[in-house]
Design a protein around this nucleic acid. Structure first.
Length: 586
RNA sequence: GGGCCGAUAGCUCAGCCAGGGAGAGCGUCUGGCUCUUAACCAGACGGUCGGGGGUUCAAAUCCCCCUCGGCCCGCCA
């Protein structure tokens, strides 16, 4: 008979949380659940390093990993369920590990950065947004949502790809993650959990957990309320419908099989119906509950360091730590908690659709700026604010200038930058890359005329006279990003040079002034400053408020009422174009 | 209700683990550039270090209480 594994708070859990009668003081900051244990002291995952001061957090983590004297290659792991569109929140999992890996590599270690796709997890809910392999984000309604809905309860790798391009739903979103990592040029080895089960990597762990089922469930029950004596830490996959079942009725350790009933599964906010099939599954035809699976991954991958989000700091980590030591008998990896990001001040949420993909971010900023964002203290909650990306880029430019000794900084900041900056850029050049300030790059985005862009940037002093063509090309790449940003946020930099004569009308005085200005420009071929001065003079001679003449210029050239300093701006444009436009002829 | 992380200038943050000078960038303001106009230069203004208490010769930093934001304490991962 199908039966739910509901239970009242059970004895194991309540006894474990009883305070010690004499109220002896706990040794240090630990969670309540971890108190009173005699094995290795519980590790506060918020504490980083060995105590030696480090300006860059990744070095502190690397210190601690090294202090354990690990064998090479050192293994750094992260992982996610391929449940939907990967977004920048997922990149904590990759980038935090990356900086630690780089720190260790500099110390001469060989490092593998492994990323598990937990793709044998069940599809529990349908995401609101999906994306094809080109990062085009679409709503659930634009794919066959019904087909997806019929697959609730199956592992991601057994759910058909809604876009039809990959082997499965899981493979599709794992591929997107792989592409995102490649786009930020972080070398990760993606490991599919489904594949690992198929390859027998989990065999020993499943067998061990089932052999030591009482001990395993006792430890887990201290952290999860629904775990009681009937709990079986293995979810067999139904051979009839493909759902992951939870109702194990017999375990045969010698044969390496479990008998199960494909009963309904409660997902918290709903029920996934089982087909009622009764069958037998091997240890590869199913999966461990995630809490055990996580620890099993540490063991068979030999993981030395694992960063995780703050949601795992208090339940998952302590349970994993204890399961590793007490159930499997090995030391868990060095942990590290990272705080979550918000996006434009709101929680990142796949289900609510408040996400930004890495592909979108890389349209707006250069990849090194994106990497730089992750060098900041992981313990602090941070907002990824698209409207303020100019500030992030300015900050990066300053960091870069400090690295090249062109801007002063105090000792700590200098050390942090000397350590982190080389990990942020593709390769260190001998001299500081030429950078156009981001907001000015947005201004240059008013035109696609490269010569005009170069002229304006040079005149403003952002392209040094001795810059090579390659340096100029590299610097100009920022323009497309900044232009995309101006368009996306529709901010004050979102204007374009009017290619054709805008539909504008002026009064007689203004028309006369514009004509006079054109004549002056034609006969004098003035430089920026002279032209700027002449605008004032012309306005005075025609008895116009200077503001009106400036506005007329902005309307003619930008279809705006305000704009950049007009003299330098017009001086940088092609002379004939300026004359025709001032005369309202083209 | 209990626990954990965070709060420092208008904004973004460093400094806190090893107590002694409150800092940076941006913004703002003022001045300069033949000049009210988004790019340049110089200077200035700006903070009860979330609030309160304690330890100390000395607290942004250590301890306790409180406020606010986030997370965990169901299931799942």
């Amino acid at each position: 008979m199908p039966r739910r594994c509901y239970s009242a708070p059970d004895s194991a859990r309540s006894s474990s949380t009883e305070p010690t009668p004499n109220g002896s003081a706990p040794p240090s900051k630990t969670t309540g659940a971890s108190r009173g244990r005699r094995s290795s002291p519980m590790r506060d995952p918020y504490e980083i390093g060995t105590g030696e001061h480090r300006a860059f957090w990744a070095d502190a983590v690397a210190d601690e990993i090294e202090s354990r004297d690990p064998d090479d290659p050192i293994v750094i792991k992260g992982g996610v369920s391929p449940s939907g569109v990967p977004h920048i929140g997922h990149f904590n999992e990759i980038m935090r590990g990356y900086f630690v890996a780089e720190s260790l590599r500099e110390r001469g270690h060989e490092v593998r950065q492994v990323f598990t796709s937990d793709d044998k997890d069940r599809l529990r809910t349908l995401p609101r947004k999906l994306a094809d392999l080109e990062w085009n984000v679409v709503g659930l309604g634009e794919v066959d949502a019904g087909a997806l809905g019929r697959n609730l309860g199956k592992p991601y790798t057994d759910v058909p790809d809604p876009f039809g391009c990959c082997d499965s739903y899981g493979a599709h979103f794992t591929e997107l993650l792989r592409r995102a990592a490649a786009a930020v040029d972080v070398p990760i080895e993606v490991v599919s959990n489904t594949q690992s089960y198929a390859d027998g990597e989990f065999d020993a762990a499943v067998e061990h957990v089932l052999e030591n089922r009482e001990q395993a469930t006792t430890v887990l029950s201290e952290f999860q309320a629904g775990v009681d004596d009937d709990y079986v830490p293995f979810f067999p996959q139904c051979s009839n419908c493909g759902n992951l079942a939870e109702e194990v009725i017999a375990i045969d350790l010698d044969a390496g099989t479990v008998d199960y009933v494909c009963a309904d599964v409660d997902t918290g906010d709903g029920t996934i119906e089982g087909c009622g099939h009764e069958g037998t599954a091997t240890f590869r035809d199913g999966k461990l509950p995630w809490r055990f699976e996580w620890v099993a991954q540490w063991q068979f991958l030999g993981v030395d360091f694992e960063p995780f989000g703050k949601d795992h700091a208090e339940g998952s980590w302590p349970s994993g730590e204890r399961i590793a030591r007490e159930v499997f008998g090995f030391e868990p990896p060095v942990p590290m908690v990272y705080e979550w990001f918000t996006l434009n001040g709101e929680a990142l949420s796949s289900s609510a659709g408040n996400i930004i993909t890495v592909a979108e971010v890389l349209e707006l900023i250069e990849v090194e700026v994106f990497r730089y964002f992750f060098t900041k203290n992981p313990k602090k909650q941070r907002d990824f604010d698209v409207s303020s990306l100019d500030r992030l880029v300015d900050e990066f430019d300053r960091v870069e200038a400090i690295h090249y000794g062109e801007v002063d900084a105090d000792e700590i900041e200098r050390e942090r930058i000397d350590r982190s900056y080389p990990m942020v850029v593709d390769e260190l050049s001998d001299r500081r890359p030429v950078r156009i300030p981001y907001s000015f790059a947005a201004v240059l985005g008013m035109t696609d005329d490269r010569q005009l862009q170069v002229a304006m940037a040079t005149r403003s002093g952002h392209l040094p006279e001795d810059a090579t063509d390659a340096e100029i090309d590299a610097a100009l790449e920022r323009i497309a990003h900044a232009r995309a940003w101006a368009e996306r946020t529709d901010n004050e930099f979102n204007y374009r040079l009017a290619e054709t004569l805008p539909d504008v009308e002026f009064d007689e005085e203004t028309e006369a002034a514009l004509d006079a200005l054109a004549d002056y420009a034609e006969s004098e071929a003035p430089d920026a400053d002279s032209l700027q001065g002449e605008i004032y003079e012309t306005a005075r001679r025609h008895d116009l408020p200077v503001g009106e003449l400036f506005e007329a210029g902005y309307r003619l050239f930008l279809e705006e009422t305000e704009g950049p300093r007009l003299g330098p701006f017009l001086a940088a444009l092609e002379a004939e174009f300026v004359l025709d436009r001032l005369r309202r002829e083209a």
